[in-house]
Design a protein around this nucleic acid. Structure first.
Lengths: 173, 173
DNA sequence: CTAATTTATCTTCCGAGGAAAATATCTACG
DNA sequence: CGTAGATATTTTCCTCGGAAGATAAATTAG
């Protein structure tokens, strides 16, 4: 008896079960895209959960970490405009304002008017902010490394390439 | 001149640029896990954005869609306890209560006491709810299909397998 | 059988971020 | 130069979901 292409893999996960339910209930639909889309969604949820634990240990939320990390990796003098931060962090301008508010209150960044454009504001890591993010990022990447430890080097590379391609072709076949 | 394993791919994306920044700023760290983790995060964001558009066209948010879809794919009689819904949708019990509140107000589900356990509540799709979710799900899977159109069948299968494996080994190497 | 514990759901309070309006400033054009 | 329209950021109001406590009912211990 030949293999059925719809046969579940040897170790089914929650997404396989969901796809199976849809096949049974709606045989007119092809739910196979969920194998990719649903897993990205679930993995994001689980990763976020685990990565947040590290941030919390330092009194940071995901949003604050993102801002600090964006400033840090931009290099000296560790400053960016609010608009730059919005572009890097994929949130609205209002959210950037509030994230920076919290970080400013905590003494991790400061704000000043831009020299050339009085509408603009320059957000800069303070010394404390730089020290903190440098420490957190170390824990963060080691945490990520640990989470990926179940995949071989080759698998990670293949996965990264496919995800890159998906991101670049999303909706543009 | 041999290839440098750190050389960026021909078509770098935002994550490649971020990893490059970290390599420059923190050469003591290995930011390569971000190639996978960072892309899952970004893809989730973009997918959520695009998938939500379909839900909005039917006056639904992601949360409401999740509940309706979970009830629908569970099969006749399209009813589950609040606890079952919590397990499937990865939110807290309070969030389930509120999602169901909204759906109940919209006449898409109804709630009744469980027969065997007076603490329990049974949430069931109404006729309108079933009709609506059946229509939305069709659009939804076609939307997902379109979003994945840039990947070949083989690439999708490989991607799905790697994501499944990652989910199953997360933090358990 | 009664009291303590556990379980299922809901309620209350709060924080994060989105949408859109409000401000302040810059740029262009007549 | 002066005003209309763009642009950068902040403010206001609102929704969603989390955390933790409240309720009510089931289960278990004695």
């Amino acid at each position: 008896m030949p293999q059925d292409s719809a046969a579940p893999p040897s170790h089914a996960d929650a997404v396989d079960r969901i796809v199976g339910q849809w096949r049974r209930e709606r045989p007119d639909l092809d739910p196979s895209p969920m194998h990719v889309v649903g897993r990205i969604s679930r993995l994001h949820w689980e990763l976020d959960e685990r990565l947040s634990r590290v941030f919390e240990r330092y009194g940071l939320g995901r949003g604050e970490f993102d801002v600090l990390a964006t400033l840090r990796r931009s290099g000296p003098p560790f400053e960016l405009s609010a608009g730059d931060l919005r572009g890097s962090t994929m949130v609205t301008s209002g959210a950037v304002t509030k994230r920076v508010d919290r970080l400013e209150r905590a003494g991790l960044v400061d704000r000043r008017a831009a020299e050339d454009d009085a509408r603009g504001r320059v957000i800069r890591l303070t010394e404390r902010g730089r020290e903190l993010i440098d420490e957190v990022v170390g824990h963060h990447v080691r945490n990520e490394e640990r989470l990926l430890a179940g995949l071989t080097e080759d698998e990670r590379a293949t996965l990264a390439d496919l995800l890159r391609k998906l991101g670049q072709t999303l909706g543009n076949p």
